[in-house]
């Protein structure tokens, strides 16, 4: 595994982001070399960089890009994007019909995923049963 990959793995491991000075210390390289590696990761659009301060020293906070994308998936309920986006109505979340519809879609999504997991559990059970019966048949033949 090369240094670039190692650095990327460290960044991916820290979901809240990691300071650049932690990475070069962990990889046992100098900060200059680390900057070059980070630059490569930035050019490949794998990470994002924010200015941060660690123990009083100015450094960069690095986050893996896929984590950033994943967190916005939570704005979707099924295929429905956040009910509050582009909304110009009086904001009353307690009674908002659009918000209710969005939460309804969330419930449908949860039910669908429950069904899917039940089906996959059934398939696994069926596979296990067929494996067991195949084992029994093998034993009988023997």
């Amino acid at each position: 595994m090369d240094l670039e990959e190692e650095a990327y793995n460290i960044i991916k491991r820290h979901k809240e982001g990691v300071f650049q000075n932690v990475i070069w210390k962990e990889l046992d390289i100098d900060s200059r070399k680390c900057s070059r590696i980070i630059k490569k990761l930035l050019d490949k659009d794998l990470i994002i960089r924010e200015v941060g301060v660690s123990n009083g020293a100015r450094t960069y906070l690095l986050k893996a890009k896929e984590e950033v994308k994943e967190k916005y998936d939570l704005l979707l309920a099924g295929a429905l994007f956040s009910a509050c986006t582009g909304c110009t109505g009086d904001c009353q979340p307690e009674y908002c019909g659009r918000l209710s519809e969005w939460i309804g879609s969330l419930i449908q999504e949860a039910e669908r995923s429950e069904e899917t997991s039940e089906i996959s559990a059934d398939i696994e059970d069926a596979e296990e049963t067929s494996e067991i019966s195949a084992d029994i048949e093998d034993a009988e033949e023997a």
């Binding site: 994002i48 950033v68 967190k71 916005y72 939570l74 704005l75 956040s82 009910a83 509050c84 986006t85 904001c91 979340p93 307690e94 908002c96 918000l99 939460i103």
Partner: peptide, 22 residues
């Protein structure tokens, strides 16, 4: 767009919390 999505996330979260409490 990243910054705007973050704003949308905060807005949705705030409204969902209010609804949950209700």
């Amino acid at each position: 767009i990243e910054h705007q999505l973050m704003r949308e996330k905060k807005k949705l979260l705030r409204n969902l919390k209010t609804r949950l409490e209700f």
